[in-house]
């Protein structure tokens, strides 16, 4: 085959990958799982289980998506997730607060931590990588202080049964919450001016500023969204585990970034869509579910997840290089 022929093919692959890559991975995973362990897929509790496992990832990934969209990153979503859950847990268990206000305060804590991230990014002018690397450690430390490094459990029964319930015995409430959040954010990105402006920020901050977009304000909003999503994820995670575990949130930063990238968000900023990110989060959930079903040790899950991040970013890079070289 001639050289230009190869180029053509790699270009076509590029276009296919950009359009259907995320679906391809999802499909591949399901096929692999169906062959390796048919029982894990062809059974009535499989889908609800997968959804349950995915809810937290979807929530975190949706927040992370915005941070990456503006060519930044949020490394603190895992810590915020843990801390918000912990705050809500303390309020319910130690302060005997009813679960609804406790959870709302927990989520608002997430909002506040996101606000702090955004404020620091704006005030210092440093890259979000540095800021959120720092706050990740700070938030984690604060959580250890709040919880005295111990698990907190004994939530009101009404809370546990609510968050672990399923609609029609099929759709877990946690997954419904995640999807509702995703729908709201999808609306935000596709139908509001603020959403459109956020994409502009990811494309070219300088030009965005000269065109009248309030860059600091939008940066702040992005981190507030990310923090809020992490806060909601914190409540959902705590409910699923039925306890607030100080280390529960660790590792979720990586998953969130992985889900956003696998879901088609470009690290260069300015490109990506919420539905893709939701599927990205779902993929992470399925990997977790599948590994558990195949009784693979969770350490291998980490290895697999890391490899998947590198592979999908590498393909993405290769694709954008080949489609640009016209």
């Amino acid at each position: 085959m001639s050289e230009t022929g190869i180029k053509k093919n790699s270009q076509n692959f590029g276009i296919l990958w950009q359009r259907y890559g995320t679906f391809g991975i999802l499909f591949l995973l399901l096929v692999v799982l169906a062959i390796a362990q048919p029982g894990a897929i062809f059974n009535s509790s499989a889908v609800p289980q997968m959804l349950k496992q995915s809810a937290v990832n979807i929530l975190l990934a949706c927040g992370e998506f915005f941070a990456i969209l503006i060519a930044g990153i949020d490394l603190s979503v895992g810590a915020v997730c843990g801390l918000s859950g912990m705050v809500a847990a303390e309020l319910m268990v130690s302060a005997h607060m009813p679960w609804v206000p406790a959870c709302i305060i927990g989520v608002l804590c997430g909002t506040f931590f996101g606000f702090l991230n955004g404020l620091l990014v704006n005030r210092t002018g440093l890259h979000p990588f540095i800021i959120t690397l720092g706050t990740q450690s700070i938030f984690f430390g604060v959580m250890l202080v709040v919880s005295h490094s111990a698990n907190i459990y004994g939530f009101p029964a009404s809370f546990s049964s609510m968050i672990n319930a399923s609609l029609f015995d099929f759709f877990p409430i946690s997954a419904i919450i995640a999807l509702l959040v995703a729908v709201v954010l999808w609306f935000f990105t596709t139908k509001t001016k603020a959403g459109r402006n956020t994409y502009a920020l990811g494309g070219n901050k300088e030009a965005a500023w000269y065109s009248g977009i309030n860059v600091p304000l939008h940066t702040l909003i992005v981190f507030i969204i990310s923090g809020t999503c992490a806060g909601i994820a914190g409540i959902v995670l705590m409910g699923r585990l039925n306890c607030a575990d100080p280390v529960a949130g660790t590792g979720y930063d990586t998953y969130a970034i992985a889900a956003a990238i696998i879901g088609g968000t470009s690290f260069m900023g300015g490109k990506g869509k919420i539905p893709g990110v939701v599927i990205g989060g779902f993929i992470i959930g399925i990997i977790n579910y599948g590994m558990t079903a195949l009784m693979i040790d969770s350490s291998y899950q980490k290895i697999m997840m890391g490899a998947l991040i590198i592979i999908s970013v590498a393909i993405d890079h290769f694709v954008s290089v080949s489609t640009n070289e016209k």
Binding site: K193, A194, R196, N197, Y199, A200, G202, G203, N204, E206, A207, A208, W209, Y210, S211, G212, I213, N214, L217, H218, I221, G269, G270, K271
Partner: peptide, 27 residues
């Protein structure tokens, strides 16, 4: 400082009129 490179022609042109009509600091 001119074009937003991940936007198409339409999105680039509509950016300023949108902002001019927007409220709350452009959001």
């Amino acid at each position: 400082t001119g074009i937003i490179d991940n936007f198409n022609v339409k999105q680039n042109i509509s950016m300023v009129p949108y902002l001019k009509q927007s409220s709350a600091g452009g959001i």
